[in-house]
Design a binder for these strands. Structure first.
Lengths: 216, 216
DNA sequence: TAGATTGTTAATCGATTAACAATC
DNA sequence: TAGATTGTTAATCGATTAACAATC
């Protein structure tokens, strides 16, 4: 199963564009005006060839003489990827992981807006965590519909994962950032981004200790 | 740049084996004795073909009649991936993210052992967080050497990321689970697993809101 | 100019899927 | 047996890299 969109942009390309954008913003802040694919490649840990492919993919053109204009390229990438800025998001689950995500929003204040967090524990409902209102799970569907929410962060206990996803999807959510250790079964057209710390730990242990991981 | 090891096991395969293992352990606990590739595939969100490929890769054989024996297959996967159980890990940085990771260890108690956490704030050094001793960054190298640590979790502020990685590598660490938003530059043979919540958010927003993500 | 870089196509590489004989 | 499944090879698909003409 692959994810694609109309323009052929894959999740991997989006990830790399984000990395380029961070580097470009950094360069811009330092007053650097131009950058070569080689330098962008270095910042993102990829090849210059791939950088040029990615930039070709968003239709931006550089100069063979000076490389890419920092501000212009940043703008071009932002035009492609900047939907994140307008995204309004909800969080389901305010356990340890949920609270870490709330903190992430409070600290890094990504431009996307965290509208509300949902929680089944009625003692928490009605309060606020890191400035975000905690609503009861019963209000989930109404909130998604009324506020036209298209994206949700799922951080509920494992045994509620699929049920939570089902409710989100039927309420109208189009993409889920899944922090549960389960793989979610969703209809076609719904995007799921899995984040699995347990697997990341095992992978690092495997390649670090015994797998003799080798970059080739 | 790809990561490979002697036996050809890629990070993706390891990730899927972990998912199969979780499902198998669940089945085992429920007293189920046999499982088909179709069911394993469903649990991990992949195709039965891929499941059979992965299982072939670890050298386990099933039966065309009953599928795979749950306990035996779990054991075979565990034999491949179970190095994680013996891994001893250190954490660098005890900010918000670092503390979330400490909580993760305390709650999910993965079998790998979190030996110590390192912190530059001298007011925290000497105390314990979630049962884990907090040491000063000056003790990093000695600890890695004396305790033969091969894996580290990097959760320092962005501007200390590369420096932290350099110190870890030169002290002898072989793999890094990187929670900073930077891509680390490490020598060949060192494995880095990147976890980037910011990018995950942007991806989900992109494919949920405007990218019209479609599973194909 | 000479040298370095981009844009873009072609080649390569790896990962996934399909197909099907063998099996029970 | 008939039907379903595995093991395994071949085909497909996608992503990455290499190559090189065009450019300045």
């Amino acid at each position: 199963m692959r994810t694609r969109n109309a323009t052929g942009t894959s999740p991997r390309v989006i990830g790399r564009l984000c990395l380029y954008l961070r580097f470009l913003q950094d360069l811009g802040a330092r007053g650097v005006g131009w950058v070569y694919s080689r330098e962008l490649a270095w910042s993102a840990g990829v090849t210059p060839s791939q950088v040029r492919q990615d930039i070709m993919g968003i239709g931006y053109q550089g100069s063979a003489q000076h490389g890419y204009e920092v501000d212009k390229l940043a703008e071009a990438i932002h035009e492609k990827v900047g939907v994140a800025d307008e995204a309004r998001v909800i969080l389901i689950g305010t356990g340890n992981l949920g609270r870490a995500i709330l903190q992430f929003f409070q600290r890094n204040h990504p431009r996307m807006e965290l509208v509300a967090a949902f929680e089944s524990d009625i003692f928490l409902v009605g309060s606020r965590l890191h400035g975000i209102p905690i609503l009861g799970l019963g209000e989930l569907e109404a909130t998604v519909r009324d506020q036209d929410i298209r994206m949700a962060i799922l951080a509920v206990p494992e045994n509620e994962a699929q049920n939570g996803a089902d409710r989100l999807v039927s309420a109208g959510v189009r993409s889920i950032l899944n922090f549960t250790p389960n793989r979610l079964h969703v209809p076609e057209g719904i995007y799921v981004e899995d984040t699995d710390i347990g697997i990341s730990l095992v992978r690092a242990a495997f390649f670090g200790c015994c797998g003799k991981g080798v970059k080739v």
